[in-house]
Amino acid sequence: MFEASGVRCGYEDIDVIKGLDFSVGEEVFAILGANGAGKTTLLSAIAGLLPLSAGRIRFGGETISGLPPWRIAAMGLGFVPQERGVFGDLTVLDNLRVGGLVARQARGDRIDEIMELFPALAGLRNQRAGTLSGGETKMVAAGRALMQDAKLLLMDEPTAGLSPLYVENFFDRIRQIHETKQVAIIITEQNATKALEVADRAMVLSLGEATTITDAKNLTTDQLRKGYQI
């Protein structure tokens, strides 16, 4: 379903990601690593927001590296960025509707599902997204990506800034979304313990290179420490 080969990318002349090869199937795939390891850079490149300096990314049998982000999104790749990622001047409801423009399922049903996932949003339907709290903004961004008929969801630190109650709920739902909707998920997360509970496999990134790619349940503390260089 997804395959990255020889991927290098970064900013200006400096490669942050220094040659990555990995593939993701119908699974939940966690990317772990210290700050500066390149997790956000990698997800931005997959979503088409950052050009590759070398290598190739394939998704659903087609090469997507080099395509504009909207084409990649229309092919079924949803992206939940680490910060912001909502249209501040639109209401919560309109933000969700924007995400649903490429969905096949009736948008109303999908919106009800999002509200069930994030009950805090139900009372904020008509509020401008720019006036929401940080945590609420994250819920809208995640909800909008779920509105899409995504085959693969990229989630960049989706639980940072969410209250404990929602963090628990969110990890439960990630598994549920994956299983009921057959959506593959790539998730970066600082909460390694939680991420490994819901992930099938994990990759540990260190300074732009993969130090380990393994089944989540087999990832050892030593492998994690090596990645985090502690």
């Binding site: 805090a120 904020l124 929401l132 709290s133 940080g134 945590g135 819920m139 800034g161 969410l162 209250s163």
Partner: peptide, 10 residues
């Protein structure tokens, strides 16, 4: 502390 949207940041 408080739930998301409690008004902490504001």
């Amino acid at each position: 502390i408080g739930p998301n949207g409690a008004g902490k940041t504001t």
